[in-house]
Amino acid sequence: MNNCILMVEISSAPQLRHTPDNMEVAEMMVMFPGLRADDPPATLRVVGWGKTASEMHANYQVGDRVIIEGRLGMRTVERPEGFKEKRADLTVQRIYRVNGEFNLGNMATPAPAIPSYEPSIPVSTYQQPDPTPVSTYQSAAPTYSQDYDSDDIPF
């Protein structure tokens, strides 16, 4: 199974193009925070195909925060310096807009505080129900009446 879910911020607008057989392909770059607070944000190329590609191009832009579900893959890129470099790509299966704020660590402002929870039943009037009696357990394993000596065992 190859399934990856990322919460990211779009860092470059989705670019729509078509394959020779007229299949739509959209590519964009996204970023997410590094592992440590002092690490720079990581970037990842995201690719959508078909209907997903047209949706990405029409509905998403730079700065949007989204949750992307897809398949992670690796590609080899020939560098101008003369060596090959491996890069990760995420092929989008589903994309969801995040309505509201979420904290991307060193990339964004802190998320708003979580609202306080008010229980529907006041704590002072709540009474825990009486425990129910526990039934006794009877084993269904067979019992053996014959005792065996260690000499009777064939190993």
Rank of each mutant, 00 (worst) to 15 (best):
L90C: 02
D39F: 01
M56Q: 01
Y96G: 03
T91V: 09
E55T: 15
V66D: 04
T76D: 06
Y96P: 00
E78C: 03
G63V: 05
P40W: 01
W49S: 09
L72E: 03
R65H: 13
W49M: 11
L72F: 12
L90N: 04
I68Q: 09
R71I: 09
A42L: 13
A88R: 07
T43F: 14
R94G: 03
E78G: 01
L44W: 02
E69G: 15
R79K: 14
S54G: 04
E85D: 09
P40D: 14
A53G: 00
V92W: 11
H57Y: 07
E55G: 13
A58L: 13
L44A: 03
L90Q: 07
A37G: 00
N103G: 06
V77L: 04
R71F: 03
G100M: 06
P40A: 05
T43E: 12
R71H: 04
Y60H: 01
V47D: 03
N99S: 10
A42I: 10
I68N: 03
E69M: 14
N103I: 02
M56G: 08
R75V: 15
Y60Q: 08
N99V: 07
T91L: 08
I68Y: 07
K51S: 10
G82N: 02
I67H: 01
V77E: 03
F102I: 12
R45F: 00
R97G: 04
P41Q: 09
P80Y: 08
V98D: 02
L90Y: 04
K86T: 15
Y96M: 10
R94I: 05
V46M: 14
E78Y: 01
E78A: 02
V62P: 05
Q93M: 10
S54V: 08
R45Y: 00
Y60R: 06
G70I: 07
E85L: 13
K86H: 14
I68A: 09
L90R: 01
M74K: 03
D38L: 06
K86S: 15
E55V: 15
E85M: 14
R87Y: 00
G82W: 02
D39P: 00
G50E: 12
R97N: 08
H57C: 09
R87P: 00
T76P: 03
L44P: 01
I68D: 05
N59S: 15
G73F: 08
A58T: 15
L72W: 03
V66M: 13
P40K: 15
V47A: 06
N99K: 05
L90D: 02
W49V: 06
M56T: 07
R94P: 01
R71D: 10
K86A: 10
Q61T: 13
E55N: 15
T43D: 06
R97M: 05
M74W: 11
G100D: 05
G100P: 02
M74C: 02
V62A: 12
I67E: 11
I95R: 09
L72R: 02
V66W: 12
T52D: 02
A42K: 15
I68E: 00
F102V: 15
K51I: 04
V66N: 11
G50H: 10
A42S: 12
R97D: 02
N99L: 10
E69Y: 11
K84V: 03
K84F: 10
G100V: 06
V46R: 07
R65N: 07
N103W: 12
K84W: 05
Q61C: 07
G50T: 13
N99F: 04
K86V: 14
F83N: 07
A88S: 13
E85Q: 14
K51G: 12
D38Q: 14
A88P: 03
E81D: 08
E81W: 00
D89I: 11
A53F: 04
